[in-house]
């Protein structure tokens, strides 16, 4: 599993296409011929990653928007980001 923390910068991988379906998000990775789904919270995180790239900023925005404990949010966010990195649909950016 990849290791990231809130200081990590993230970008969407090339050849990944996305489409909203209701409140959820479908991501198609053309290289792997696979698609993935994100629930509405995951879809919001994806949008924030696209906007900011900085996990720190994603974290702060989510903390403002959702009624959630800071520690829980950090843990859930990093778990999702690690899953997305392992799936190859996002990459760490220098």
């Amino acid at each position: 599993m990849s290791q990231v923390d809130l200081s990590t910068r993230i970008r969407i991988a090339e050849d990944v296409l996305v489409q909203a379906v209701g409140g959820e998000l479908v991501m198609l990775d053309l290289n792997q011929e696979k698609y993935f789904g994100l629930d509405p919270v995951g879809a919001r995180i994806w949008a924030l990653i696209q906007d900011h790239g900085s996990l720190e900023q994603v974290y702060r925005a989510m903390l403002d928007e959702y009624d959630v404990e800071a520690e829980q949010l950090e843990s859930d966010l990093l778990e999702l980001v690690n899953d997305l990195l392992d799936a190859g649909v996002i990459e760490t950016a220098d």
């Binding site: 296409l17 959820e24 789904g37």
Partner: peptide, 14 residues
């Protein structure tokens, strides 16, 4: 149904 809708969205993207 949800999986079908996701698959159809992915097929459209492809």
């Amino acid at each position: 149904l949800k999986e079908l809708a996701m698959a159809e969205a992915a097929a459209e993207l492809a």
